[in-house]
Amino acid sequence: MPRLPRLAAVATATAALTVLASGPTSAGEPTVSDPRVVAHFDFTLGQTPESIALEPDGSANLSFAFARQVARVDKRGATRILATLPPVANPNTPVIGAAAAMGIARAHDGTLYVNYATGTSETGIWRIGPGGGAPVQIARLPADGFLNGLALDEECGMLYAADSVRGTVWRVPRDGGTPTAWATGTALQPLPAPAGFGVGANGVQVHDGAVWVSNTDRRTLLRIPVRPDKSAGPIKTRATGLDWIDDFAFTGRGDTVLAALIQDNEVALVRPDGTHEVVLTERDGLSNPTSVAVRDKHDGHGKDGKHDKTVYVPSASYFETVKDPNLLLARLSQSKGEGEG
């Protein structure tokens, strides 16, 4: 989703909205309940949480876009700054004009990777050691692109970064090196004004032998299979009508997704057949939600033999009418045997 400073032309964004299509509730599908905001952040300090990666203990690593920081927030809401990306004298980032810490991913050893969009040679993927410290740039990406979501495929040691302006999914070795334009095509491209806002490929996740990508302007969720030789297979559209979709997360092993709809202040449950329904709203505390994470470890057992997990939703309050950047947690309940554990 476009990462706009507070005084952006919200009227332009509003004009691009359409009615959210939704499908009927399916019996036995995951349910979301008990939403609660556990941490509030300061917009004036640039604490606009953009992306999220979880720690084994349930703490959340967040990229604070306009503060150029990575922070760790525990489940009680205590916040600690892990790293600050270097300042850029004359940032010229497409879409937003400012330097911003964007997508974040975590390796099993605790290493964090973060996209830094600047419009300069600092644009690229940066590595932060376990526990924090000085970030190190491991890959330089085109300055005229807009790096957004980031995902790590630890099995093959590759990072995937979504470029919203160039309509590209970049592939970079985890240890750093030369980026490869792994996937391109119309489905990843933004739409020109006034049909779109100039933001195409946005969120990115690695799941079940494929790289999944959201396209904000086209309101779609895409699946790109990873072929045996690790090249990109044909792009398939898995869901449409997702207005202002940002980043997303899978609820488990299946293809059910929770997607952040940033401008509508909603999170939608997207089913494997492409239908969807809203499960969290502004009334629950959402304030321009940017991404979603699901803690895989079961947090307990709910009613009727259901497994309970925890959903995390950062909100950045990018738009002028919303004023509460925060982190929201909720309960995700799934029936045994759904294949979503």
Rank of each mutant, 00 (worst) to 15 (best):
128 I>T: 00
165 V>L: 14
104 I>F: 03
108 H>Y: 06
167 G>Q: 11
145 G>E: 05
147 L>N: 14
79 T>D: 11
171 R>N: 06
127 R>M: 08
97 G>I: 05
165 V>G: 08
112 L>C: 03
152 L>Y: 05
79 T>S: 13
128 I>K: 00
122 E>G: 09
142 P>A: 04
107 A>P: 01
126 W>A: 03
82 L>M: 12
104 I>E: 02
131 G>V: 00
145 G>W: 02
78 A>V: 13
125 I>L: 07
145 G>Y: 05
76 R>W: 06
118 T>A: 03
142 P>H: 04
124 G>C: 07
91 P>Y: 10
125 I>S: 05
184 T>R: 07
161 A>M: 07
164 S>N: 09
72 R>Y: 00
88 V>C: 10
81 I>Y: 00
135 P>A: 08
81 I>T: 10
73 V>M: 12
190 P>F: 13
132 G>N: 05
161 A>H: 07
88 V>P: 09
124 G>E: 02
93 T>I: 08
106 R>I: 06
87 P>A: 11
114 V>K: 03
74 D>E: 09
183 A>K: 04
88 V>S: 09
98 A>I: 11
83 A>Q: 05
191 L>G: 07
110 G>C: 03
163 D>C: 08
100 A>Y: 02
192 P>C: 09
136 V>G: 04
96 I>D: 14
194 P>S: 06
126 W>K: 03
146 F>R: 09
110 G>D: 01
115 N>V: 04
149 G>V: 06
132 G>R: 03
169 V>P: 02
96 I>S: 15
124 G>P: 05
163 D>T: 09
95 V>F: 04
159 L>C: 10
115 N>Q: 10
